[in-house]
Design a protein around this nucleic acid. Structure first.
Length: 491
RNA sequence: CGGGAUGUAGCGCAGCUUGGUAGCGUGCUUCGUUCGGGACGAAGAGGUCGCAAGUUCGAAUCUUGUCAUCCCGACCA
């Protein structure tokens, strides 16, 4: 019978897990906490990566590659940085194996102990800044605008496919600047670029803001973030951009001679998004039938399914289908014609709905008689009959329409699930019973933030940029506050 | 690291209480009939029951140990 997905209402995290596996995006591997990204999932990531890569290059960045391993001593140069990552680092201590003396398998050769242990990078600030030290002498060497596509390892206690895995893929940008203003400008440019990408390609609306001190990146002066709201009412941090001040320049002694012949420390930024974005995409849009993928980054935008009773009918349908396929390909639309005979059309419908293909074209003998085909849109599940000669236009418009509809739906959801509250009782009730974003006054102290977190599991997701200033009282302490911040339970 | 659970065919599970021929669903292979929303029939292939020791004539089943995984906590820029 039908292969059913656990519904979102039954068990949201089970739904998510089932969906990732059944849609063929990824699966758990033999290594605890590490996933295998399957071709369909990797193709989605490649599309996201390609768009971002283009955006980085258009804003003057170049790609480079730095080592996977970081000497242990590097990590301890910046105090708060090591504190932030120390508890989740994988460490390489030996470089050789040998046959076990008892002949049973293989052991680590105790004679191969490394002089200095190597850390598998949890992030690359340290190795990169130790390199930048060699590259920077003069203000003429600045800015350095580099991005790297890489894998990193963070030994998380509990992992979830795409959302938190021990190893994940990401990009990390690391830039070096002459002035504080220039570095801040870069940090803001990137967070806006991320928001642009997530909204205009993934169709997920985000809030842009600053992290509180407690949520700030280890080693940063200021952390900018984009926060998205998932369908279960929990927030997901979708990307971060850090203004690092001169912290890393000082830790790695990176100075330059200015135009005025003065020795100065370099100003830095770092920023990244990861395969976690795939998780965001899934949880923001998908439904109980499967994935709903935004057209601009879907691995497959259109699938054509033939309906036929015999070889003769299939031949007729195929002629039309293959013509449509070609004319869509000319428009750079990715399209697959699935005429596999071992599966029936109904099976294929369900399969492509599970996989979230935005548009399906169905062609049967009945359609050919009327010189039309049936379009099916995954987001709203609507069927539309269109004339054969207008298919290409209709599909182009539909893909565009699907993106806008998906974004509008997600935005409406966020707006319906954002609550302004002014008292502690309302706050607790909202977090506990409604979920979503809660906009509330906060006295600005880490103590209050911590107390709220302990009592409600809600954290400050961000202090929105261009936040309207208004007088108010902290919902927890009652102390005066000048602005509202966004709270939520988060992934 | 604390609490709970589970390891049996690719996947999902039953069998264990009361020891005695290794089962079901799904998937896979072949053939035939089907084909406008997950078709049906027939014939097949596939398992040292996580691992190790013990009890026994005999262990998937009982005992002990061990390893692994999952869930709930703690932890999570």
């Amino acid at each position: 019978m039908a292969e059913q997905l656990t519904t979102r209402q039954e068990n949201y995290s089970q739904w998510y897990n089932d969906l990732v596996i059944k849609s063929g995006l990824a699966e758990n591997s033999a290594v605890r906490g590490c996933m295998v990204i399957k071709p369909y999932g990797y193709s989605l990531w490649e599309n996201m990566r390609d768009v971002l890569d283009r955006m980085f290059k258009q804003t003057g960045h170049q790609n480079a590659y730095f080592p996977l391993f970081i000497p242990k001593s590097f990590l301890s140069r910046e105090a708060s940085h090591v504190e932030g990552f120390a508890k989740e680092c994988a460490v390489v201590t030996h470089y050789r194996l040998k046959e076990s003396p008892d002949g049973q398998g293989i052991i680590v050769d105790p004679d191969s102990k490394l002089e200095e242990e190597l850390i598998v990078r949890p992030t690359s600030e340290t190795i990169i800044w130790s390199t930048y030290k060699n590259w920077i002498q003069s203000y003429r060497d600045l800015p350095i605008l580099i991005n790297q596509w890489a894998n990193v390892v963070r030994w998380e206690m509990r992992t979830r496919l795409f959302l938190r895995t021990a190893e994940f893929l990401w990009q990390e940008g690391h830039t070096a600047h002459q002035t504080e203003a220039e570095a801040v400008e870069e940090t803001e440019k990137i967070i806006n670029l991320y928001a642009d990408f997530v909204e205009n390609y993934m169709a997920v609306p985000v809030l842009i803001g600053l992290k509180s001190v407690a949520e700030r990146f280890a080693g940063a002066v200021e952390t900018y973030c984009i926060e998205a709201l998932m369908q279960d009412g929990k927030a997901l941090q979708a990307g971060t951009s850090h203004f690092l001040g001169q912290n890393f320049a000082k830790a790695f002694d990176v100075q330059f001679l200015s135009k005025e012949n003065k020795l100065e420390y370099v100003w830095a930024t770092s920023w990244g998004v990861s395969t976690r974005l795939v998780g965001a995409l899934i949880m923001a849009h998908s439904d109980d039938r499967g994935l709903v993928l935004p057209p601009k980054i879907a691995p497959l935008q259109v699938v054509i399914v033939p309906i036929y009773r015999n070889e003769e009918q299939l031949a007729k349908v195929s002629e039309v289908a293959e013509n449509i396929q070609k004319s869509l390909q000319v428009k750079n639309i990715s399209v697959k014609y699935d005429k596999r005979d071992e599966y029936r059309s109904g099976w294929k419908f369900n399969e492509y709905e599970m996989k979230g293909v935005p548009v399906r074209i169905t062609i049967g003998a009945r359609d050919l008689e009327n010189n039309q085909v049936e379009l099916f849109r995954r987001d709203t599940l609507e069927k539309i009959q269109v004339a054969c000669d207008s298919v290409v236009n209709e599909v182009e418009n539909l893909l565009d329409n699907i993106h806008r509809t998906m974004f509008a739906k997600a935005l409406a959801f966020r707006e319906q699930n954002t609550y302004k509250v002014d008292t502690w009782e309302e706050f607790k009730n909202s977090i506990e019973n409604k979920g979503g974003f809660v906009s509330a006054h906060w006295d600005g102290t880490p103590e209050t933030e911590e107390a709220i977190k302990e009592q409600t599991k809600a954290t400050i997701r961000c202090i929105p940029l261009n936040n309207p200033q208004e007088e108010g009282k902290c919902i927890y302490s009652g102390k005066p506050s000048k602005e509202r911040v966004i709270f939520a339970r988060a992934y």
